[in-house]
Design a protein around this nucleic acid. Structure first.
Lengths: 164, 164
DNA sequence: CTGTTACTTCACGTGTTTGTGAAGCTTCAT
DNA sequence: ATGAAGCTTCACAAACACGTGAAGTAACAG
C-alpha cells in the first residue's frame, strides 16, 4: 500500500496546530498542547527542549513553561542523556490513561463540594438539597463508570503487547 | 434528619461561588456557571433574569450573556410567564444528561482530527502514525463507553420517578 | 580555570476574556 | 397614546493568561 508513506512536513505542521488547539479547548495551556502533540507526531522516541523550540518556532522560555506543566500532570517524562546537558522529553506509555485519570480528580472535587452544599441549602428534604444530591449521585456514578472504562481499555490494548 | 433544616444564606452563597468556579474550571464561562448553580440551589422552580441579577449582585447585562450561553448548550430553558414581561429560567429535568452529552461533540471532533492526521505523518506504519491511531482508538472507545454509561444512568434514575 | 552550550527564571508587552454602564427595544399597564 | 419595567445589545475598562527577550545558572569541553 503506502500511498501516503512520505511524511508531509507542511501538512504535519498544520495538523499539529489543529490538534493542539483542540486540546487547548479541552483545558490545556496552548503551548503545552502544542508540545504534547509535537511529541506524539515525532518519529523520534523523544525530543529535547531545543528541538521542541525549533519545531514550534517558539522561545526556549515558552518550552520550559509548557514542559513544566506537562510533567506536573504526568503527561511527559524527563530522561537525562549522558554526556549532554539536554534532557529528552518523552511521552509515557500510558499517556491517555494518565491524562484521563487526571481528570478524575476534578470529578472527585466536584462530588465532595456538592455533598458539602446540601446542608447549607436546607438539607436533602428541600428542593435545592434534593437537586444537589442528585447531581452528586450522577457524578459519583459517572466517576465509577469511567474507572471501569479505563480498566476495560487497558485490558483490551494495554496488556497484550508487553514486548521488551 | 433535620439538624440543618434552616437554609443558611451566608453559607449557601459561599457554596454557590465555590461550585460555580469548579464548573468554570470545567470549561464554563464564569457567570454562566454561577447562574447554573444558582438555579440549582433555588427553592423556586425557576428564576427570572432580575432575580438572578439580584442574587448574584451582577448587572442585567452579565445575566443576559450568561443565560444565552446556557440556553445554547441546552442547560437552561426559558418559560414565559403570562401577564409579565419577565421570562422564567429553569433547568431541564435531564440537565446532567444534556450537559454530558454536549461534551460528546468535542470527542467526535477530536477523533476526526486525529484520524485525518495519520496520513500527513507518514501513515500508520510510522511511529507517529501509530501513536495517532492509538489515540484515535482510545477516544473512540471512550466515547462509545460514555454513551453506554449515560444510558445506564437514565435506566437507573431517569425512568422511575415520572411523577406529574 | 575558562568558555560555551542548553535550559531556566524574570519582567514586560500583547491579546483575550469578563463584567459594567448606558442606550435601545419590546411588552404590558394606564 | 403614553409611561414604565425588563431585557438585550453595545462600547469600554479591568483582569488574566500567554509568549518573548534578556539575564542568570548549571554542566560539560578544552
Amino acid at each position: 500500500m503506502g500511498v501516503a508513506d512520505g511524511r508531509d512536513e507542511e501538512a504535519a505542521r498544520h495538523f499539529i496546530e489543529q490538534m493542539a488547539m483542540l486540546f487547548a479547548d479541552w483545558g490545556f495551556p496552548r503551548m503545552s498542547a502544542r508540545v504534547l502533540i509535537t511529541l506524539m507526531a515525532a518519529e523520534e522516541r523523544g525530543l529535547t527542549a531545543g528541538e521542541l523550540a525549533d519545531r514550534l518556532a517558539a522561545s526556549p522560555a515558552a518550552i520550559s513553561g509548557a514542559v513544566r506543566y506537562l510533567a506536573q500532570v504526568g503527561l511527559v517524562t524527563r530522561e537525562s542523556v549522558l554526556g549532554s546537558r539536554s534532557d529528552l522529553y518523552l511521552l509515557p506509555d500510558d499517556a491517555w490513561y494518565t491524562g484521563t485519570a487526571t481528570k478524575q480528580a476534578l470529578f472527585a472535587q466536584l462530588i465532595a463540594a456538592t455533598d458539602k452544599g446540601i446542608g447549607p441549602l436546607g438539607g436533602p428534604g428541600t428542593k435545592a438539597g434534593a437537586r444537589m444530591a442528585e447531581m452528586r449521585d450522577f457524578f459519583a456514578f459517572a466517576q465509577q463508570e469511567m474507572a471501569g472504562v479505563l480498566e476495560k481499555w487497558q485490558a483490551l490494548r494495554g496488556k497484550p503487547p508487553a514486548r521488551s
